[in-house]
Amino acid sequence: MLIFAKNFILPKIGNIELPKFPLLLAPMEDVSDPPFRRLCKIHGADLMYSEFISSEGLIRDAIKSRKKLDIFDYERPVGIQIFGGDEEAMALSAKIVETVQPDLVDINFGCPVKKVVCKGAGAGVLKDIDLMVRLTKAVIESTHLPVTVKTRLGWDNDSINIQEVAERLQETGIKALSIHGRTRAQMYKGEADWTEIAKVKANPNIEIPIFGNGDIDSPEKALEYKKKYGVDGIMIGRAAIGNPWIFNQIKHFLKTGEHLPDPTLAERAEAAKNHLTWACEWKGERTGILETRMHYTNYFKGVSHFKPYRQKLVTSDNLSELIDILDDVSQFENLEI
């Protein structure tokens, strides 16, 4: 039985006006940095978030945490996501976040990785809704920015509590809620269950925008889930890695029912080259080269005879050489998609 949502809620977060049925880029550790966000923005992402940032790290003035606060005007609207399990630390970190003037602050109550959960943060907070509420209140009371939350269905299948979580977080004053349709126990395995997300959206007491997350990897699926589950928008994570075009592809399909052409080999090479260049500008050449290596396989997924070029891309430490390799890739006729 399908669960149909109540009347459509305009996708507005505080004073941030979003287009009808916005597409959000999910915050992903070691992925959602400024170079990657820039590519996704160019290709249609409506709202993006930083990588998640440790509240304790911000307070300690940790270099890595501070670096994640970098945002740029061309990204807007953009939110900075924080996580932690201590109310005072979350409040103080929200004040620090406010100084760089993002459009919103997002709280991560969904990260399932052990090193975060063991600190009583991320998805670890799903086992204690009262703590979740206190942490959220602490952030809201310490900033003038709109506060949103990203979370999961519950800790495991025996403790799915997203219905209670949604109502109680709305009462604290959050302006939107993004829900990943898996439990913490699932990590990223199995299928995401959007029926629970639809129940939240259909709840007559819920007045804030509800965004669904999990398993959206094609325009067809985006349209199906939009119709079937009635959410206000979709958050896309892993499907955007190496494929920033997915946002405009979905938008075009929702509008026309037709597919945009797949990116050409030249367009893939240009995206990879931009990613590399912007990463080097932001992180420094050495770090930019090393951290971009993980993306090449994704940009050229499905390209035949690419292996020799991939080997060069992941072994070269010279920026000019890497640019030349990507220029060559875009022109070689023996490479096919």
Rank of each mutant, 00 (worst) to 15 (best):
L126N: 14
A192I: 05
N213W: 10
A198C: 03
T148W: 04
T183A: 13
Q249V: 02
I216G: 08
Y188K: 04
V165L: 14
V147M: 02
R238W: 04
A185E: 15
V139K: 00
T148Y: 10
D130C: 02
N203I: 07
F247S: 13
L145I: 10
P219H: 08
K255A: 15
M187I: 05
V165I: 15
I179R: 06
G173K: 06
A222F: 09
D158I: 11
I246H: 05
I236D: 12
D128R: 09
K226R: 06
F211L: 10
G173Q: 09
H180I: 01
Y225W: 13
I216K: 12
E141L: 13
Y229M: 13
D156R: 15
L169Y: 01
G212I: 04
S159T: 09
K201F: 06
A166L: 02
D193L: 07
N203E: 12
I160P: 11
M235E: 07
D215G: 05
R182P: 00
K189V: 09
M187C: 01
P209S: 04
R134G: 05
S218G: 08
V200N: 10
T172Q: 10
W194C: 08
T256I: 05
L153E: 14
E196Q: 14
D130A: 02
H180K: 03
A185Q: 08
G212H: 04
W155V: 02
P244C: 04
N213Y: 10
E196Y: 15
N213H: 08
P209Q: 09
F247N: 11
E191Y: 10
Q186F: 00
H144C: 04
T183H: 13
G237C: 07
I208P: 00
W194M: 07
K127Y: 15
H252I: 13
I174Q: 00
A185H: 14
L223R: 13
V133G: 03
A138E: 00
R134S: 09
L135C: 14
F247W: 12
T143Y: 03
F211T: 07
E196H: 15
